[in-house]
Design a protein around this nucleic acid. Structure first.
Lengths: 219, 219
DNA sequence: GTCTATATACCGATAGAC
DNA sequence: GTCTATCGGTATATAGAC
């Protein structure tokens, strides 16, 4: 009972229960990472936003590297869950559109015109060689998972006649992945409208008839 | 004569003449920027590499922001010169291949497997909202220049029957620009071979016959 | 688990001698 | 123009009380 009372007292002014602090830190750090990059966010930013202290974060994540690795691993696990949760009967075109929608969500989360969220790869690539090796390893695994899924989806779609493209499916997967990653970045510098049109362009090349039926993704 | 003598003495141990220090700083900073990002390089890195002191750089570029703006403006000027230097009789396909080659050069400049140079946009996008406004402005202008040229080249190529693609030329220009920018980043995380194949994939979609004639870009 | 307080390091920037 | 020396700010990280 004493323990519970102490908890209740310490939790004054916070919106989450004590055992969820770790999750709140991850949630906050994730947004900071995708908005400002890894070197661009500090424990202090998280502490201020959560109303806790610098040292409290170090209790959950002793070094920033630990937080960074946890973040990327979290992306991987979430992607695996996202794939597993896709309805089994969904065709390749719709799976791809669902994936595009996660990027549309990144684009929508902006406070001003030039600070939309980037995807994990796009947020970490520029400073890649300055990151600790455990983080680099985890990022490579994440990129591999996404590429494998994209490649498999494209292959299935072509086999079923829903998607049309030239060349190797893995090459096309890399092209689409690179265009999405670079597209969010370009949205920051050239305006959000560019990214919506990029999504339509990618879809148009994969299957003009389905795009016509959907009416494009322009907001 | 006194001035010249003083210069000669101060230049001991350096490989460039005194009036070129500014250029040497820009050259060194440019590589650091494309390899480590804007927040990832410090005056100290430049000073060590050039064998000068921190304060000497501040003489040429009082604030880091000044150096950053000068770097991006330099990219813009160099791109304009590059465009102007393209032989007038070159067809759109060849112009596009020449542009791809500048990205091939970025990829080739790596000291280890995962630190190839990124293009300016890809190096600055992740920390865009943390950059000083004058830098952001200059970057937007650079992106606009490149997009305009890409769009015009694509349009001309389609008109001349050398390039084939669906949809609006500007949308295709953004797609190609995004794929190149994201592609270099993916090369860091998934291996350089992916980028060579991406270049082939882009070219294949624009004109399969010319790719066949050229034999691809695989190293 | 979270706090206060502090150690340590790095970086951008300035002052003043030469 | 470049140097030495240093200030001020900010970042990661730790020690120890509660």
């Amino acid at each position: 009972m004493l323990h519970a009372a102490t908890e209740a007292q310490a939790d004054k002014g916070r919106r989450w229960s004590r055992r969820d602090t770790r999750e709140a830190i991850l949630e906050c750090a994730e947004e900071l990472l995708q908005r400002r990059g890894y070197g661009g966010f500090a424990y202090q930013h998280i502490a201020v936003q959560l109303g806790i202290r610098n040292a409290a974060i170090h209790y959950h994540f002793p070094a920033k590297e630990d937080l960074g690795v946890a973040l990327v691993r979290r992306y991987r696990e979430r992607f695996a869950q996202w794939v597993a949760a896709l309805p089994a009967q969904l065709d390749a075109w719709s799976r791809l559109q669902a994936y595009f929608s996660t990027y549309r969500a990144y684009l929508a989360e902006r406070k001003s015109s030039d600070d939309c969220l980037l995807c994990p790869g796009g947020a970490l690539a520029a400073e890649f060689c300055t990151l600790p090796e455990p983080m680099r390893l985890e990022i490579r695994l994440l990129m591999r998972d996404v590429q494998d899924w994209l490649c498999a989806t494209l292959e299935q779609g072509r086999r079923d006649g829903e998607l049309h493209f030239e060349g190797d499916a893995l090459d096309k997967a890399v092209e689409i992945g690179a265009a999405l990653q670079g597209g969010l970045q370009i949205a920051r510098m050239s305006g959000a409208a560019r990214f919506y049109r990029l999504l339509d362009q990618l879809a148009l090349e994969l299957n003009p008839l389905r795009v016509e039926a959907a009416g494009g993704s322009l907001p």
